[in-house]
């Protein structure tokens, strides 16, 4: 929206003022994320820029907080846990979610909106309620003594449940533009169900499945409330460790971890964007 040539002086002032306001809002959005990165290289254990840092003196910067992560058993353990739980729960969520999305996109499915409501409910219920409920249930499922709380299985199942709605929604959205005649064509040429699924359906919906899986992974990777209630010390994930760090002894190591997480989220964002564009291209949608 370039400024039109017929604009009066008042309109011109407004135009530049508006641009300034937008810049300020974008600044508000991005600065909290950017500011953490240089601070994580602080040589001093402060959460603010030292005068030396502002003068860009090399001694003011160090990698000591990154070294801290590498040398800290707890941080390493939590990083490992985050990936174990994240990947396992993503596998469960993606498999079940993709199958369900295939079913949900069929016109014949009875009681569709009720089913959809149930399947995406983990996304709607406030996390604190989910966490409390899961704490009770997983401590003594169906009144048995087989406690799943404070086990990897319990945390993985809980995170898988939280991740499935995202898979269902993204894959269902991908299937909206899916041409059903391709399945009929495949069947008429003698392919059986598995062949049709892996050779025809899967390649077409793969972008949606992958972005759903990424959403599920991020949900687990970033989740702390359920972990707070349900996981034991052994299952501490990165967010849980950060939570403890912020509440108990806040140290700049957290800023180093945060910087690493920002890098992870940038990579995820890039992947999602690429997939989204590919999907749009394949569906022939052009913006």
């Amino acid at each position: 929206m370039a400024i039109p040539s017929y604009a009066g002086p008042l309109e011109r002032i407004w135009y530049y003022l508006y641009r300034f306001i937008c810049a300020a809002i974008f600044f508000f959005l991005i600065v909290p994320i950017i500011v953490i990165i240089p601070l994580s290289f602080n040589a001093e254990p402060y959460f603010t820029f030292t005068p030396e840092m502002l003068r860009l003196e090399p001694e003011a910067f160090s990698l000591r907080w990154y070294a801290d992560i590498v040398n800290n058993e707890q941080w390493l353990h939590s990083i490992k846990n985050s990936f174990i739980v994240g990947i396992a729960s993503t596998l469960v969520a993606t498999t079940l979610g993709t199958l369900a999305a295939l079913g949900l996109s069929r016109a014949e499915l009875p009681a569709k909106s009720l089913l959809m409501g149930i399947l995406i409910s983990p996304m709607i219920v406030p996390l604190i309620i989910t966490a409390a409920a899961m704490f009770f249930f997983y401590s003594a499922p169906f009144g048995t003594d087989y406690a799943l709380a404070q086990t990897y299985t319990g945390v993985i199942l809980a995170h898988a449940a939280l991740g499935t709605p995202f898979v269902v929604i993204t894959v269902t959205a991908t299937l909206v533009g899916f041409d059903k005649n391709l399945i009929r064509a495949s069947n008429s040429m003698g392919a059986d169900m598995p062949t049709t699924f892996f050779k025809v359906i899967m390649p077409l919906i793969l972008p949606g499945v992958i972005s759903g899986a990424l959403f599920a992974f991020v949900t687990s990777f970033d989740e702390v409330v359920v972990v707070l209630f349900m996981a034991g010390f052994e299952q501490r994930t990165i967010p849980r460790q950060m939570w403890a760090g912020i509440r108990e002894q806040i140290s700049p190591t957290i800023l180093a971890v945060a910087t690493l997480l920002i890098i992870v989220s940038t990579m995820l964002l890039a992947t999602i964007e690429i997939l989204r564009r590919r999907n749009e291209r394949m569906r022939g949608v052009t913006y």
Partner: peptide, 24 residues
Amino acid sequence: LLPFWTSLLVRTTSWIVLLQTQGV
């Protein structure tokens, strides 16, 4: 989108760093 994809705890930490009395 970058804030949207960044961990909740990271963003909360940043606000602590920015807003605290000895903060940025």
